[in-house]
Simulated scan of single mutants.
Amino acid sequence: MTRHTSFRFCLDPTVEQQAVLSRHVGTARFAFNQCLHTVKSALTARRTDPTVSVPWSGFDLINQHGTAARLLSPIAGIRRVRSVRAAVTATPP
């Protein structure tokens, strides 16, 4: 018989660590929302045109977003990163 054990940990980050963790969580949320938007847009387009492919796997989404990032010029990419960082770290109203 196998016995499974679980552990629980509590984080007590410093103020600086809390800021970094918040940025990481915000970035992950932003990436998830972008991928969700991509899939929903493809599903909507597929209703009218059945030949549209929907990026179902994580690899499809990574490839699609990686291609879009490479198409941006370096300056536009820097501006985008700054705007994303500002949007992620902004406090909600």
Rank of each mutant, 00 (worst) to 15 (best):
H4N: 14
A86L: 14
C10A: 11
H65I: 10
G58Q: 11
T51G: 03
Q17P: 00
V25P: 00
T67C: 02
A69D: 06
A19M: 01
V88L: 12
T89M: 13
N33Y: 03
N63H: 08
H24Y: 09
V88N: 13
L11W: 08
V20P: 00
A31W: 07
A45T: 08
R47M: 04
L72Q: 12
T48M: 12
R29A: 14
K40W: 03
V81E: 06
R29G: 05
I62S: 14
R46L: 02
T67L: 12
F59Y: 04
I78Y: 07
F32H: 10
T27W: 03
H65V: 08
L71W: 07
R29C: 03
D12E: 13
A69I: 14
Q18E: 15
I75E: 12
P55Q: 02
T89P: 02
P92H: 04
T89Y: 05
F32A: 10
V52G: 05
R47T: 01
F59Q: 06
R82W: 01
L71T: 05
H24R: 08
D12N: 07
H65N: 12
P92K: 00
S6P: 02
T91Y: 06
R85H: 09
V15W: 04
T48A: 13
L43T: 02
E16V: 06
N63D: 15
V15S: 11
C10D: 09
A45E: 15
P93F: 01
V15L: 10
Q17C: 08
S6G: 07
V81T: 05
A31R: 09
A28C: 15
W56F: 12
L21Q: 06
T67M: 09
L43P: 01
S57V: 02
A42L: 02
R80D: 08
V52T: 12
G77T: 02
F7Y: 13
D60W: 10
F7C: 08
S83E: 13
I62D: 14
A45G: 14
N63Y: 14
L11C: 04
V39N: 01
L43R: 07
